[in-house]
Design a protein around this nucleic acid. Structure first.
Lengths: 214, 214
DNA sequence: TCCTCTAAATCTACGCCGTAGGTAATGGAC
DNA sequence: GTCCATTACCTACGGCGTAGATTTAGAGGA
């Protein structure tokens, strides 16, 4: 009945579990980035032998899938809101907030094909109101996928962007002006910087105007 | 002294060059996938010592950046077309075609921050017509970024999707229907399959309707 | 012609990595 | 007490990226 079995370390606080492993993995990604993740380093942080991880996780890839699901689970459920547009907007903002909360781990969600039930919860949250509003299922799925594609694309740019230093963008501005491409040079001041928040709202509004007017 | 060492004959067929390395790297990605790329394996395919690659490429990461640029360079330049919408649509389709031509390598373009001049050519090709059509630069950049985000998101799904087997989608369909989520179950037949072409056109039309009507 | 000088290819070696296979210890079930 | 599943640990293998030193073919000046 209880999951407590096998050989515990001398300290009961040091017992391993899938949850503890995933939590520590997420911290590791947050602190050192995705490339720095290795089974050995993760085990070191947990004060444990590397091979012990394999009792709780199927391998490195499955570990990263697990971390992605932890991130996905952080999306708040939308209030049962009568307004379709408000619901979709809230979910989009929730998704974005969850990713921006762990920018270095976000690519795990944005680039992996997740087949778990956790990944379906937000889908249900969008699809439900769309169907309730009378959308034919086919069109609802189309709309969901269009918004999701935009979210993924925007967030990918957002989380992979180098943090903007005040003088960092100046070097970039000069590069753009010196590119020899007339339109790029003309729009250089706007290309050199990126207000992610504004870009997000701009694109989301266009899509929601088309999909959930009102 | 039978082993060949030092600088090779000038114009032999076995001479290394950045272009030859990048071309072989792209082939390797196409055939075995991104994870299978290693400096050592690439060198083996080129019949060369692994360390020789470092005379032409700054390291593995720079190598992959180079491959990404090769992909980007494959986007055909748009005809000087008077119609703004046609131009943008052509570039979007060109981008998609270039990525679908090398689906396993596409993530290199879609997930990396590319700062090269090669990456700016398509930007110029979109920005030029937008500015010529009288769009203020700020709005032109906004529009460009919105479309690009959608393109990246859609293509990411498209290239990471497992090839659809006739019975593969059937297993997926059953999973969705058994998920216990009512809206997901109701729309399951449409969630189980994905006509990427149609999704692409659907989302692109929405964005172009908003940005380049006509 | 010979003599540098340089760039390219090679060799060696280090410290990582993921994980297969095997072993010892622990506590619940009987 | 005895068994057995579970878990932690250990060893080892093959592969990885690449720093550093070494060798050599050709270029350019004397």
């Amino acid at each position: 009945m209880t999951t407590r079995r096998g050989r515990p370390p001398k300290d009961s606080d040091g017992t391993l579990s899938r949850e503890r492993i995933l939590r520590e993995a997420l911290s590791l990604v947050d602190e050192e980035g995705l490339d720095a993740v290795s089974m050995r380093k993760l085990a070191r942080r947990l004060g444990v032998d590397p091979m012990s991880l394999y009792n709780h996780v199927d391998g490195k890839d499955a570990l990263l899938d697990g971390v992605a699901e932890v991130l996905l689970a952080a999306i708040p459920a939308a209030d049962p809101e009568p307004d379709l547009r408000t619901t979709m907007s809230a979910l989009a903002h929730g998704f974005r907030a969850a990713m921006l909360g762990h920018p270095r781990a976000a690519p795990l969600v944005l680039t992996r094909r997740l087949a778990s039930l956790t990944a379906l919860a937000p889908v249900e949250a969008v699809l439900g109101p769309l169907l309730a509003a009378g959308y034919p299922p086919e069109r609802a799925v189309h709309g969901l996928r269009a918004v999701l594609a935009f979210l993924i694309g925007t967030l990918m740019r957002e989380v992979s962007a180098a943090p903007t230093f005040s003088n960092g963008s100046r070097g970039r501005l000069e590069d753009l002006e010196a590119s020899g491409l007339p339109a790029v040079a003309a729009a250089a001041p706007y290309l050199a910087v990126c207000d992610h928040e504004a870009e997000f709202e701009f694109g989301l509004r266009i899509l929601l105007d088309a999909l959930a007017p009102g």
